[in-house]
Amino acid sequence: MSAELEIKLCTKNLNFYYGNFKALENINSEIYKNRITAFIGPSGCGKSTYLRLLNRMNDLIDGTLVEGLVEIDGQNIYDSNIDVSELRRRVGMVFQKPNPFPKSIYENVAYGPRVHGVKNKNELDHIVEESLKRAALWKEVKHKLHTSALDLSGGQQQRLCIARVLAVDSEVLLMDEPCSSLDPSSTMKIEDLMFELKLRYTIVIVTHNMQQAARVSDYTAFFLVEEVDQPARLIEFGPTDEIFTRPRDKRTENYITGRFG
């Protein structure tokens, strides 16, 4: 792994509110390009909320308010001149439950590029093949591209959802518990895939599975709500090797060693 770290995404003094309720407080963090960053913490610690702020998914909820900065390549994504659908193309999301469209495998992958203006059949074919290859699904589906995506196994559906993000030339993959509905062997396939994908993409993963965070990530961020009705805070951020062998903060240590949470 090269020593130079480039910041892909960062947040500065970020606060986030649902109505009057402050859900996140003063989050400062950096997400490095071509690295895998894992967000960990107990349920309700704000890690998914924070993840969704990174491509403005929380805009879809009424009454939310963002204070502070969220930057991608140095540009604030909450600036008024930002094209949100373009932002979500660059920063794609994979959800906990695979959510393919009830269409063919081919159409699932081709949908995004079409929306973004690709009409040429050959070009679409190429994008579909390339995306499925990058998502390590091509070999399993190349003979049945025009059958329903819903007939795929859960693990295959999840890789299809990853292919869908890759098809629109994303730069960042946000993954919200991408393996929690998958069996161990599908989980391992997704994890192997993440290692390959980080050569081209920046990956952020929210996971409840601490071993998974320890296995796959380069950096780990630990979030915690210390008292009921208090906002979530980023307690510790650092190289995964250090977080899991010698965390600096006692609260991180207590959480990852199962002493609470």
Binding site: M210, Q211, A214, F244, T245, R246, P247, T252, E253, I256, T257
Partner: peptide, 9 residues
């Protein structure tokens, strides 16, 4: 158990 942090140490 895949212990971590102080437990691993």
């Amino acid at each position: 158990q895949q212990p971590v942090a102080v437990d691993l140490r």
